[in-house]
Design a protein around this nucleic acid. Structure first.
Lengths: 265, 265
DNA sequence: GGTTACTGTTCAGTGGAATGAACAACCTAC
DNA sequence: GTAGGTTGTTCATTCCACTGAACAGTAACC
């Protein structure tokens, strides 16, 4: 009862938003990004987002004109403009621009796959990858998302948050996504690891996302006050990995992180 | 007289648009992507786009909530969500997903820098890069844009268009952007090359974007009816480049292109 | 201190965009 | 063929988001 007055609050979107069309447009793109095939029809979108079909039609027309989405017959997909904009975002991240240059100066790392990733909610997004002498090529691509609990970079990045922020993301009993038998299962397990990570200054992943693969990661000091939270990781084969090699990698990762964290490093 | 009635047509945006807020939001992101520093204030944006400040404020609030832009003090930048969306777009392009795998099977190419790019208006956008044994590492990054007239891929891609489409993009006297003394200068010069490219089946770039560097490129047959126009290029040093090596590269590029063009190649 | 030129915010009035019912154009089905 | 399920489109009505002027807060200038 009570204030069932607001007719539009039926959708889950933020309550009194200033430019609802924009919020909805973003929801459309999210839905397309989240859908399995990346293709949805007008009716699909209208149903999923709880927007009247006629309004959805208008919305899609505007999005299409802006090339933020693309119409393919009766189906809609994300548009090319998004590649452009995403690239523009990355081109402004000096850390990414400098990443390749710095990787080459790290003797141990240069033989392995090094990646730089960004924290995004409870996921990390891989931004760039350096493969010195690709013995094993990872299947992961730039832009791929990975739950923080499943990878070393993810753990390194949330280890930097305050406890109550982590608590807000994961309750102790929260069920975490699982990819291998060694994947962490609960929020509590994850938080226990964070303590170790904070003490050591780096994170380790032991076949938690891919069997046969281990990872080391550190976080990059954030430049300025508002930049995204960035981290670096190295991937190695469990079969050939040694602690000795690991500590050398961590050392080099930390150097890289320091370089990237210092403007004009 | 007559229909000077529409008060809002003062901005250069498409006339009667259905969801103007969306069109404007896209314009905001474009402006941020185009600006030199990637940082603009509310007033900057309002002035540049010809939108009242109060409206701009609302727009920015909604964009920020959707994480399509990010506020940093008084300045706005593109938002992280754009990386996510751009990545989602690319992850649906099977050609890009398969690109790395196929590159490794090309013996000559595997020692060079191979790239896959997408046509976007009068520019190409580089989507992925493969560096087998990086003798020379290019400074270009994924997502970088390049005018079609300045690179082999660009020329290969517009060679595929009909003449009248090319004419619509470039008049004969159009002044093309110039990066080196060898850059093409006019639309007419460009169009003359297209004929050769169509005959040969590949495009060549002779130090037109970077002195000391040559490029070969072919276009990839478009899958389905609506996909983007994709092309492949190899980069080599002019100093070590031979015609013999070139014709081998073209052969392998064409094989790659054919593989990528065939679903489940 | 006063002036000017900015910044971004507030708020009431209003014009245009969102709405939903009715529509048309398909399909499959039995 | 008629019914039931789609699909996306159209259009008059109505309400809400946009507007613009007035506001407040800051910075630089003489």
């Amino acid at each position: 009862m009570a204030d069932s007055r607001t007719p539009r609050s039926s959708d889950g979107l933020g309550s009194a938003s200033p430019a609802p069309a924009v919020t909805r447009a973003a929801a459309v793109m999210d839905a397309l990004a989240a859908s399995a095939t990346g293709r949805l029809t007008l009716s699909d979108l209208a149903r999923e987002l709880g927007i009247p079909k006629s309004s959805t039609s208008n919305l899609l027309l505007a999005l299409e004109e802006a090339r933020l989405i693309s119409r393919q017959g009766a189906e809609f997909t994300l548009g090319r403009k998004l590649v452009e904009l995403g690239a523009a975002y990355l081109s402004r991240l000096d850390e990414v621009q400098e990443f390749y240059r710095f990787c080459e100066q790290a003797p141990t790392l240069s033989g392995e796959t090094v990646r730089i990733a960004m924290l995004d909610g409870t996921n990390v997004i891989y931004l760039a990858r350096y493969e010195g002498h690709p013995a094993v090529r990872l299947t992961s691509n730039i832009g791929d998302k990975m739950p923080v609990s499943l990878c070393a970079v993810g753990k390194a990045l949330i280890a930097r948050l305050h406890d109550h922020d982590v608590d807000a993301m994961f309750s102790d009993t929260a069920e975490l996504p699982v990819l291998t038998p060694k994947s962490l299962r609960t929020g509590a397990e994850l938080k226990a690891q964070l303590r170790t990570i904070r003490e050591q200054g780096y994170a380790f992943e032991d076949e938690e996302s891919t069997t046969g693969v281990v990872c080391l990661a550190v976080s990059v000091p954030t430049r300025g006050a508002h930049g995204p939270s960035l981290g670096l990781s190295v991937t190695a084969l469990k079969a050939t990995y040694t602690e000795e090699q690991g500590s050398q990698m961590v050392k080099e990762l930390k150097e890289l992180a320091r370089s990237l964290g210092n403007p004009m490093g």
